[in-house]
């Protein structure tokens, strides 16, 4: 007999155990991820890229700024220069590997900081409710009144070029949207029955936050933050493309793209290489983020 019966009674009787539920939840997430070939593939590419740029000094055949004018703009496949050389005769492969360190760093750091800062502020706003919530969300609205690229460009344009300034301006751009997501998720979870129940049984605010709200809130905020990494990579390299961000002669993909614009007539393939790197990174991050969202069953 394969007839199954509702387990409704058993579920009702047992007190909710967050840790245990989490365990099975994460196992289910893992299983769904393992089935998602696109996400796995993109994740693997990202890992490979991360490893390559992390060990760039060991992997790269030349230093990122070594070059001679004599050997400038050699085509792809030149002996000794697998991906050719740039407009100043520097090895493209080496520069791409080293440039990735800056691009990834400037792309990911703002999102990470914004996740911590914006996430905390949003959770506080959502949990506090009332006037505090109102105040925080109204300030957030102001930053929402700027198109994101404009805000990044304006702030880092005022601050001037430099890695720190680029990171700071991007962080300012990403904090408000993360606050919004964190606030709405927290408010949602806070109003759920079991948080109400926890409050009714006399659990203090602290324990409600730690035990009930945090585990349910961090997942969606994290997924949202990962979805920003792709954009962040593009805008970060875009800032360097505009001459904000990383200063020459240091390699950075956006900056390389800009300096190679003069080469589009002579070596178009080489000129587009840094862009392909940015594109690949961004696509992979977006696919992985989508996969995570699906696997973790987070509604957008």
């Amino acid at each position: 007999m394969t007839t199954t019966y509702s387990s409704g009674i058993a579920e009702d009787a047992a007190p909710p155990k967050v840790a245990e539920n989490d365990d099975t939840y994460w196992r289910a997430v893992g299983r769904r991820l393992m089935r998602d070939k696109v996400t796995l593939f993109c994740g693997a590419i990202l890992m490979l890229m991360a490893a390559l740029i992390l060990f760039a000094p060991l992997v790269a055949p030349y230093g990122p700024t070594d070059g001679s004018i004599v050997r400038r703009l050699k085509p792809i496949g030149t002996p000794g220069h697998l991906l050719g050389t740039d407009e100043l005769g520097r090895d493209m492969l080496s520069r791409l590997l080293h440039g990735g360190r800056y691009s990834w760093f400037v792309g990911i750091t703002p999102v990470a900081i914004a996740f911590l800062v914006g996430g905390s502020i949003g959770i506080i706003a959502g949990f506090a409710g009332g006037k505090i919530n109102m105040a925080i969300m109204r300030v957030t609205d102001v930053f929402y009144a700027f198109p994101s690229v404009l805000l990044a460009v304006a702030v880092s344009g005022s601050l001037g070029a430099g890695i720190a300034n680029a990171i700071m301006s991007l962080t300012i751009v990403f904090i408000p949207p993360i606050i919004r997501v964190a606030e709405s998720v927290t408010t949602g979870v806070r109003n759920l029955d079991y948080a109400e129940a926890a409050r009714a049984t006399g659990a203090g605010a602290r324990s409600i936050v730690v035990v009930h709200i945090l585990p349910n809130v961090l997942g969606p905020i994290f997924v949202y933050a990962t979805s920003l990494v792709g954009v962040s990579m593009i805008v970060a390299s875009g800032l360097s493309f505009l001459g904000l961000g990383i200063k020459p002669p240091d390699p950075e993909w956006g900056l390389m793209l800009n300096t190679l614009r003069s080469a589009i007539y002579s070596q178009p393939m080489i000129a587009t290489l840094p862009g392909i790197c940015i594109f690949m990174t961004s696509v992979c991050f977006n696919f992985v983020s989508d996969g995570l969202r699906t696997a973790m069953d987070v509604r957008a």
Binding site: M1, T2, T3, T4, Y5, S6
Partner: peptide, 18 residues
């Protein structure tokens, strides 16, 4: 008592028997 059978699985015999 009980609840209807799960129709994802084949049912042998009278479905109401359980």
């Amino acid at each position: 008592p009980g609840s209807p059978p799960d129709l994802r699985h084949p049912i042998e015999g009278c479905a109401f028997a359980p």
